[in-house]
């Protein structure tokens, strides 16, 4: 979030609250380019207060039941895009199977806002400060994107294309997130924030022990999160954990190019990324 003077009012818009997904999609098409989707609305309302955006129509999707479901299928765990951060932390199915996501959700705003914040909103604004995206990327999640023309599926890593920009077209919305794993894997999520609660760096780590697959995602340091896997980290499953972690954090440090802003400088973010990555790896592999 920026540090501009807050406004006390919102620009004029028409509020629409469809009950069905098809209705939301046709409204998006009908008012193409003039409408914005609102779920929790935290980011949307703040951006409107700052007059950074002034949509003519606001489409509230909180009334659409199918976007609020969480289910376990043979293809993994499916999470509706309007599931809230509180739900991600409290549902047993997420806590047991996707701990990195549950932990990331505990960082999405403060506790009160977490009743409102949704996973879809958190990732689709396309800001580096998202907690959901690094966690989802570390688990190789897929996003189901729908428009009136049908649906397409993209890897979570292809959602953000630049600062505040996503690959979503203006008549499309994320309807569902599919995490392809549900067992035999561990994960965690760590974050360093400064006193004003702005993220300096976030790290999401996921390990699939059975298939010896490891991913480390570093978020909040650049417009797009950085994705590493056991290959790019030159992880040697035979070598000792401390050796591997030391090596991996050096590789991370030499590959990331963090941004400098009011919150932290590039060099500091780079150091923090290395330290957080090492801590997260230790946690996931259990000590050392």
């Amino acid at each position: 979030m920026s540090f501009t003077t807050p406004y006390f009012t919102l620009p004029k818009f028409t509020y629409l609250k469809p009950k069905k997904l098809e209705d939301a999609l046709s409204l998006l098409r009908q008012y193409r380019g003039k409408a914005k989707i609102m779920a929790g609305g935290i980011m949307l309302i703040n951006l409107m207060k700052e007059r950074k955006i002034s949509p003519e129509y606001v489409i509230d999707i909180k009334g659409i039941e199918e976007l609020k479901k969480i289910s376990k299928t043979e293809n993994g765990i499916k999470i509706g895009s309007a599931v809230t951060a509180i739900e991600l932390q409290s549902y047993q199915i997420i806590r047991d199977n996707l701990p990195a996501l549950a932990k990331a959700a505990s960082y999405m705003g403060d506790r009160t806002l977490q009743h409102t914040v949704t996973i879809g909103g958190n990732i689709s604004v396309g800001m580096p400060s998202t907690d959901g995206l690094p966690a989802l990327m570390s688990m190789d999640s897929l996003l189901t994107i729908k428009s009136l023309d049908g649906e397409r599926t993209i890897p979570a890593s292809e959602l953000v294309i630049g600062f505040g920009r996503t690959s979503l077209k203006d008549d499309e919305m994320i309807t569902e997130i599919v995490v392809p794993y549900s067992r035999g894997f561990k994960g965690t999520y760590l974050k360093l924030i400064n006193a004003s609660e702005v993220a300096i760096a976030t790290v999401a780590v996921s390990v699939l022990l059975k298939e010896k697959k490891l991913t480390v995602v570093i978020g909040a340091i650049a417009p797009r999160p950085y994705y590493f896997d056991h290959k790019s980290l030159q992880w040697n499953w035979e070598a000792s954990l401390s050796e591997n972690i030391k090596n991996a954090s050096e590789i991370i440090g030499s590959s990331v190019k963090p941004m400098s802003d009011a919150v932290a400088g590039s060099e500091y973010r780079k150091e923090v990324s290395k330290v957080l990555a090492a801590r997260a790896l230790k946690e996931v592999f259990g000590g050392a």
Partner: peptide, 27 residues
């Protein structure tokens, strides 16, 4: 604060705490 940070405008909406500066009246 008017931007969802301080929480002083918290009310219960159907029993759930929300920040009323981040909530539309129509909601």
């Amino acid at each position: 604060c008017w931007r969802g940070e301080c929480g002083l405008c918290t009310v219960l909406l159907d029993g759930i705490p929300v920040k009323s500066c981040m909530t539309l009246a129509v909601e």
